[in-house]
């Protein structure tokens, strides 16, 4: 799933949890799901940071060539 989709999912789960009409059981289930989604988000963000580091190194190489 794309990062934006996971973020939307996380937001929806958060709304469910905060809804006072949601039962405790469903809230806990929603929270467990949100943990899984948040973990995926953070993993994706970590990948992007890695790619940025590669680009940063390339930029440094270009500067050094100048």
């Amino acid at each position: 799933m794309k990062l934006e989709e996971n973020l939307n999912k996380l937001s929806q789960l958060s709304e469910v949890i905060e809804d006072s009409d949601t039962t405790l059981d469903d809230s806990i289930k929603a929270f467990e799901q949100s943990l899984v989604v948040a973990e995926q988000c953070l993993k994706q963000l970590k990948e992007y940071k890695g790619k940025l580091t590669v680009l940063e190194n390339k930029l440094k190489e270009l500067n050094d060539e100048e």
């Binding site: 958060s14 949100s34 948040a38």
Partner: peptide, 15 residues
């Protein structure tokens, strides 16, 4: 992301 989780946890704790 972290803030959402924290707020969810707070809401859950409150509940």
């Amino acid at each position: 992301v972290m803030q959402t989780e924290v707020m969810s946890l707070v809401a859950l704790q409150r509940k």
